[in-house]
């Protein structure tokens, strides 16, 4: 009768250690995911605003490749007559992501040397919320700028997981 060779005590100890280390790593990954370090979650949520508070943003620090992500912008007041807001998104942002939709829908869109400009009709004399749903097309850092009309520039960044 051929009995397969038994694992030595050192091999069994090594196997147990690999098992424990692996389980610990998996648990840490899951806790990180729950906390929002690998995508949406409490530690990922970030709110930023310009120094003059005319433009505020709410987004996630960590996003995932080609997963939909909402960028919420709050503009303090219309920047154009007739209740229109001019929203400017830096060119690298528009080129590096797929914008699924902008809510409210822009009435016009123009391309400039550094920014794409969207004219959006909003409620007059009240802070307006604009929601941009996009999906990142590349891994790694995503740095871009947002501007309401001629106001201050808001610098935003995300890290895109594969």
């Amino acid at each position: 009768m051929n009995i397969p060779p038994e694992a030595s005590p050192q091999e069994r100890r090594r196997t147990r250690m690999v098992h424990h280390v692996g389980i610990t790593i998996f648990l840490l990954i899951l806790l990180s995911a729950l906390a929002g370090l690998l995508g949406k979650g409490p530690l990922s949520k970030v709110e930023e605003q310009t120094a003059d508070a005319t433009l505020r943003s709410e987004s996630c620090r960590f996003i995932r490749y080609q997963a939909p992500m909402d960028l919420k912008l709050q503009i303090a007041a219309p920047t154009l007559p007739n209740g229109m807001v001019e929203l400017r998104l830096s060119k690298n942002f528009v080129d590096d992501v797929e914008i699924e939709h902008i809510q409210p829908e822009p009435e016009t869109q123009t391309a400039g040397p550094k920014f794409y400009t969207y004219a959006i009709r909003v409620e007059t004399n009240a802070p307006s919320e604009i929601r941009i749903r996009f999906a990142a097309s590349h891994f790694g850092r995503l740095n871009y700028q947002v501007r309401a009309g001629e106001g201050e520039i808001l610098h935003l960044q995300h890290f895109v997981f594969p």
């Binding site: 998996f26 990954i29 899951l30 995911a33 995508g39 995932r64 997963a67 939909p68 997981f161 594969p162």
Partner: peptide, 21 residues
């Protein structure tokens, strides 16, 4: 859902396996 990233797949697999364990 609509998240087809490798990261999401890895997290889901780990969630299911660790729950089972």
């Amino acid at each position: 859902d609509s998240d087809h990233s490798v990261t999401n797949a890895a997290i889901l697999i780990l969630t299911l396996v660790m729950t089972s364990l």
